[in-house]
Design a protein around this nucleic acid. Structure first.
Lengths: 227, 227
DNA sequence: TCCTTATTTTTTGTTGACAATACCCTTCCA
DNA sequence: TGGAAGGGTATTGTCAACAAAAAATAAGGA
């Protein structure tokens, strides 16, 4: 078994089901479990060293995150996003992250601005180096959005975006080998957004975030079309 | 056992877990399982005549819909919304249903308008009678919103709103004995929204839906404050 | 050769039993 | 009287075996 789960040094887990849920989710997002592929319960339970009971609970949690699709009496498949589904996600992001931005602008404290600025500085440095730039494109971008959503103070909003949609986006980015995109432009837009939040201008922050996501969507679509 | 599950004439079910998931979800939304109360696995499994295996899978699905909260080694509790959580949901609704409305305005066909108008007529009649008015407040309102989201054509949006948030709202409405609210005003707003959709004016439709939800939220909050 | 059908095998769905943890109630001591 | 410690009970977590369904394979006929 090549893909043995060699992380035996797990500090402590609450339940096997929750533990394996985390592991499988990571595997899916990293692309180790290919999109569209079938989940084989006996094989996975052997691989993770647990019985099928908690494994099936983990799969049901994955179903809740929309990372797998279960067909009765047939089994679960890793979800595979097509273009139109990806566009659907971007439409929702545009709407919800605009909201998050507006809320963040009214909630954020001086300390929060500082944190955001630190993150931006960090990203600026990363953009310099080739490896860093790749990291920025792959994870740093979502890190920024993650922080904004956190500052919104809306726990359910956080849940939907960070607990569900972002994982799907991460999965897709790995899947498509993560091409150039538009990192410098995106960084500039992040910068403007933080400015608006610092000025407590919720309306502007929302508008800028809407544009930011719309731009990302357009870049994505044009990149897909040219293939 | 008073609350026996007497629906033995179930046509055919795919799996017990999915079947019981539906039943428990209904029970929660109807308030038969009280918000905040604990889920007792042995008791429920006996009540529904299944073993704990599929029951636990059903509970995990309920967790995915945010209808129960599971604490490891302790168990699951029916979710109980407080005011701030309710406001969070309304913030998200405002954002997402605005989006749904905009999309619906560009997607909807002549047949769709007709359906919406029929629904409005139906509601108008219901508002006349006392019982109908109560129904309109309780379910008809969400029926309308349900249709709009459906017409948006965004399946994931549908999932979030109709698969998750609406159930929580239904639950809350039953919970708070469903007071007068503002049915006539809400109906008028529904009417305006359909007009905008029929004119394919996405921007206006979005704006009107935003206001509609904002009004509902304000009415809700003022009603809560006066208690 | 290809399609249909029968049989075998694999996989999913379900169950009841066991282990571990949390909860409750009694008892004891300061 | 209050609280801590202990033991007993109920509940959750986990497992392995069984039943049922789907998938894969083999056999048969046109």
């Amino acid at each position: 078994m090549a893909a043995e789960t060699a992380n035996a040094l797990n500090a402590k887990s609450s339940t096997l089901a929750d533990d394996v849920f985390d592991q499988i989710r990571t595997a899916i997002v990293k692309g180790e479990l290919a999109p569209g592929s079938k989940i084989n319960e006996p094989q996975l339970s052997k691989q993770y060293g647990i019985s099928r009971g908690p494994l099936r609970e983990a799969i049901r949690r994955l179903e809740g995150c929309k990372l797998v699709e279960i067909k009765p009496n047939v089994g679960a498949n890793i979800v595979s996003l097509n273009i139109s589904q990806l566009i659907e996600i971007y439409e929702i992001r545009e709407s919800l992250e605009g909201l998050a931005c507006r809320l963040a602008a009214t909630n954020a404290t001086a300390e929060d601005y500082l944190r955001l600025r630190e993150l931006l500085t960090q990203h600026e440095e990363q953009i310099q180096s080739e490896n860093g730039l790749r990291y920025y494109q792959r994870e740093g971008d979502l890190d920024f959005h993650f922080q904004i959503v956190r500052l919104s103070g809306n726990a359910r909003l956080f849940d939907i975006l960070c607990g569900e949609l972002y994982h799907l986006l991460r999965m897709y980015r790995v899947q498509t080998a993560n091409e150039p995109s538009r990192p410098i432009q995106a960084f500039k837009e992040h910068y403007q957004i933080v400015d608006a939040i610092e000025q407590a201008d919720g309306e502007l922050a929302e508008l800028l975030m809407n544009r930011h996501i719309a731009n990302a969507r357009k870049a994505l679509m044009s990149r897909i079309e040219q293939e």
